[in-house]
Amino acid sequence: MATRVPGPLTRPSEAATGPVATVDGLTRRFGERTVLDRLDLEIGRGEFIALLGRSGSGKSTLLRALAGLDSEAEGGLSVTGSVAVAFQEPRLVPWKRVHANITLGLAVPDPKEKADAALAEVGLTERAGAWPLTLSGGEAQRASLARALVREPDLLLLDEPFSALDALTRITIHQLVLQLWSVHRPAVLLVTHDVDEALLLADRVLVLDRGRIAHESDVPAPRPRHRDHPDLTSLRTTLLAALGVSPEGTT
């Protein structure tokens, strides 16, 4: 089993309370194809994990299992605490205004105030009354993040939420995610196929291959990180090699 090394920013008190999610020998088959093969994983409280992998490596399948959206995965899976998900497409409900999307299914006494606070945090206050179809891609993804955060999750699952954004918007949303994470400290599992994104954001980077965790690296560099930080450069080479790509051929 992968031994968890707390990231440099994980507070000791949180680390002491045990993992927020434990995956123990998880297997998922689609017909003949085994997508997850006896996978083990522990996600510590407040830890930011990036899950890298090629298409079809099982990244999203693992995330869906953790989100409780897959009832057919076999093996051990336990999540202590609440889970929230932000998907690749923002998946806002088009017939509910933005604030109603944020409070969807939210069982608190003051949903309106919570929504206002969450929208303020992601910088969408003035779009609270808008219909989702009128939002830009970046705005919609912010709203999706607000909908996840308003639930104050112990585990935040991000399924490639930045991949459909343009490069400039992606940079702003990266900053936003880091900022929200440092304030609320949920554990984060970010599924991505972008090595740079993983290195920029995560405490720990996992590479998934053929349904198992093939590689694991801690990212010790302090935040805010710069792409050209020497530690990151060598890590990038290692991770790309783990993904089966030679860096010279890709840049």
């Binding site: 989100a67 409780g68 959206l69 998907f87 998946r91 017939w95 969807l104 299914g105």
Partner: peptide
């Protein structure tokens, strides 16, 4: 179906799923 998944992840039950997602979606 993706909206139905959202409904599940935010903890809507079957009745609420029908009320908030299915019926308005079919309208």
């Amino acid at each position: 179906g993706k909206l139905a998944e959202v409904a599940r992840t935010v903890g809507l039950g079957r009745t609420q799923l029908i009320r908030h997602i299915v019926l308005p979606g079919a309208l």
